[in-house]
Amino acid sequence: MRMTLTETTAISLLSQGLLLAVILWVLESRQAIANRLLACLLLAMTTRLLALILSEERFVQEWRTEVTILHNTVLLIGPFLYLYARSLVHHPTRLQSRDIWHGLPFLLAITWNLVARQRYLLPLDDPDLIQLTAQHGLASSVSLLTYGLLTLRLLQRYRLSLLDKYTAIERISLDWLRNIAGLVLLLAASGAGLNLLRLAAGWPPDPARWIVLPASAALFYGVAIFGFRQSLVLFQRSDRSSAEAGEEPEGGPQPSNLATQAPRYQRSGLDPDRAARLWDKLQRLMQTEQLHLQPELQVDTLAVALGVRQQTLSEVLNTHAGMRFYDYINGLRVEEARRLMIDPQNAGLSLLDIAMAAGFSSKSTFNKYFKQVFEQTPSEYRRQHMP
């Protein structure tokens, strides 16, 4: 039996997925739960790819029941994606007993396949079979949409919690996983649309399969590459973030200017006089010690230097500066970078050198905040103000 190029490529991806899953499962790491959930996610995606390959008519005629059951693994992709993201955020030592309920739709789907086995043996162009498979595909899309949204919500809350504690979040912000969740939502929405067309017009499955197969392969590769890289990253955190403690960060989208950010603690329990004294003390501390020049400065370090608890420091920043710790420190760094930039003695320094000297750990963060404050890029500002 001669295989097509697409089938050969997909089978190659399957082999890589199985190998990565085994490596992740046995890998000794402080993130063992996350690694094993990632392995399960890759296995679910691998099985889904196998089901799409075997959906070719020449395979389906011989292994109809097996192919139908394999297609149900799409109902595991969403749960494993969400549980994997949750494990990266909360760092659990084990899964919760109620997590088993995430697999209930998968078990129900398999049970239904076995009970209604004869209906799945109808000819491939039979209208009843097309309707049945379209309903199954629509249910799968709804599952992916639901878990994709839950994952994005979890990661957004996690990112907001980081802004209250860290000034360098590039390595721990999990932006790659947010992009993966967004891609899952896009594919799920597309799949829902295709299956609605099939329900309405009896559209056969083959055209949709050749759209879903390469998209699923691309998604699989993205999860495999970035997930394996993530498994090698150890988060350097002195204590649990507010996301780990179950706190729900507030706040909305970032405005265009740091100085206009609304306070997060609208009803602070901190005495106004004490808050004002702490704010003045913080200002003097930053001027004399220049702690913002430390690239890895964290909120607990600054709180100790100020002699207060982390929550107290966060309240002071939100009530007096109207911004989070992340924005406050990077605002000071932007001002330091501006000072260095217009100093004639620094004419030979590159913008990257200036960013590093000001305490930034990445040029992208420097560019973002500089433009947010001065409404122009660092290079534009330097050209205009350099003597």
Rank of each mutant, 00 (worst) to 15 (best):
L149G: 03
T47N: 08
L160D: 01
N113H: 15
M323F: 01
P105M: 07
G269E: 05
L177A: 02
P344K: 02
E56I: 03
L24C: 08
W210Y: 12
Y328D: 04
A201R: 15
I53K: 05
G251R: 05
L163R: 07
S238H: 07
A51S: 12
I100F: 11
L293A: 13
S15R: 13
M45S: 12
I110R: 10
E375P: 02
I211S: 07
P207H: 13
L352T: 02
F106W: 15
L38T: 14
L5Q: 01
I354G: 07
D327I: 02
L155Q: 06
V142A: 08
A139G: 07
D343W: 09
H102K: 11
Y158G: 02
S141Y: 03
A358M: 05
D125L: 06
M3F: 08
P253L: 09
A189T: 10
L20E: 12
R159I: 00
V67I: 14
L197H: 04
S173G: 06
L108T: 14
Y84I: 02
T93Y: 13
R36C: 03
V67S: 06
F80T: 05
A116F: 14
F220E: 02
L107T: 15
D125Q: 06
P344F: 11
R157M: 05
L185Y: 13
D273F: 04
A262F: 11
L76H: 08
G137T: 12
L122T: 13
L297Y: 09
F226V: 00
I180Y: 12
Y84K: 02
Q311N: 03
M341S: 14
T93N: 11
L183C: 02
W210R: 11
S238Y: 00
Q230A: 15
